[in-house]
Write a protein that binds this DNA or RNA. Sequence first.
DNA 1: TCATTAAAGTTAT
DNA 2: ATAACTTTAATGA
Length: 198
Amino acid sequence: MVIDENILYSVGAEIRIYKPSEYLFTEGERPNYYYQIVTGEVKLNNYNEDGKEFIQNILSAGQSCGESVLFIDRPFPMNAEALTECSVIRLHKDAFLELLNETPKLYREISSFLSQRLYYKFIMMQNISSPNPAIRLRGLMDYLKSFHHDESPYSYTIPLTRQQMANHTGLCVETAIRTIKHMERENIVKIRDRKILY
DNA sequence: TCATTAAAGTTAT
DNA sequence: ATAACTTTAATGA
């Protein structure tokens, strides 16, 4: 968790429920709130000129979003869409910044969270710039698996659909599927009832 | 080689 | 039932 919920409530935060496919915020909007996910999953994405989706990240309980842009005067560069039903704590920008001023410890925690995001972005950017789809997908899987602490092969079930994996790596679904099949033949992954074990 | 299109089967809602 | 996802195959850059 990023910030203790009780602290957020004490400075005026409110809880909001979002239905699947509802937006927390959209690209181009002016950021007015700090968001922290209590339950559910939120997808950060963009759409390119042809309307093709690119998933930037998928966030789950305990993670925050929107904070990256609260410190600067810029509109949101992405959409935040609820994937499942979500309960999200929302705190107004001014109250959020005020809270950080009063509590240096929180400043550090937010910085740490932002650093993690930056780290993720860097890793993903590295492997997504590879022309080889296997490297892109493996980079994604390696990153996801790095949070599960069992390193043995096939111990981690990829929590994404192939569609989502493709949209994460800028590949088309068909290429993602073919590449994953190829990886299965090479014993890099196992597939058990459509789930990818890595 | 990969994206795109089309078509069909499968799963989830 | 209907939408979303998965898979295979053909074609073209």
